[in-house]
Amino acid sequence: AKPPKTVTVKVEVTNADGETQTRTVTLTNLPKDLKPGDTVTLPETGQTARIVEITP
């Protein structure tokens, strides 16, 4: 079996106070056609994050 493909992405997350924070997260099994501006759900927090940058 192939190991899951991990991708490092820079995302913007809005916290409970309405502040936008930029975080770098490593995600696995992202859709192939994901692009900056799309939103993903962070598995560890369940927060919705907007992708700023994808590092191949």
Rank of each mutant, 00 (worst) to 15 (best):
K32A: 15
G37C: 03
T41P: 04
G18S: 03
T28W: 01
N29T: 10
T26C: 09
P36T: 08
V40G: 00
E19R: 11
P31K: 07
V7C: 08
T48I: 12
V52Y: 00
T24G: 01
T8Y: 06
K2M: 15
E53N: 06
P4C: 14
T14D: 06
T8L: 10
L30R: 01
T48W: 02
G46Q: 07
N15P: 02
R50I: 15
T48N: 10
P56L: 10
A16M: 10
T8I: 14
V40C: 04
T20R: 11
P4G: 14
G18N: 04
P43V: 07
E53P: 01
P56T: 13
T14K: 12
P3F: 09
D17T: 10
T28F: 02
T8A: 06
P3Q: 11
R50K: 12
Q21R: 08
T8D: 07
T28I: 12
P36D: 03
K5C: 14
G18D: 02
Q21D: 07
T8H: 07
I54M: 07
T14N: 05
I54L: 07
I54N: 02
V7N: 05
P36F: 05
K10M: 10
V11T: 01
K35L: 09
P43W: 05
T6D: 07
L34I: 12
K10H: 05
D38G: 04
N29S: 08
V52G: 00
V13I: 14
K35V: 07
D33R: 04
L34K: 04
G46Y: 01
T39H: 11
V7A: 08
V7F: 06
L30E: 14
Q47T: 08
V40W: 08
T26L: 09
P36M: 07
T26D: 14
P43R: 07
V52I: 14
T22G: 03
G37W: 02
V11M: 05
D38Y: 04
V52L: 14
R23G: 04
R50E: 04
T28Y: 03
V9G: 01
V9K: 00
V9W: 00
P4N: 12
N29Q: 11
T6R: 10
T20P: 06
T14F: 07
E19Q: 11
E12K: 07
Q21K: 11
I54D: 02
A49D: 00
V11L: 09
T24W: 11
T8M: 10
T28L: 03
T24P: 01
P43L: 07
L27W: 02
A49W: 01
D33A: 08
P56G: 12
E44H: 11
T6G: 13
V25G: 01
T20M: 11
A49E: 00
A16N: 09
A16F: 09
T39N: 08
P36G: 02
P56F: 06
E53Y: 03
E19A: 11
I51P: 00
T28P: 15
T14V: 15
V9E: 00
V52C: 03
V25F: 01
V25E: 08
T14A: 06
T24Y: 08
T39P: 05
P56A: 13
T41N: 09
Q47F: 04
E12I: 12
E53F: 02
T14E: 07
E12T: 13
D17Y: 11
N29Y: 08
G37Q: 01
P43D: 07
D33V: 07
T22S: 06
T6I: 11
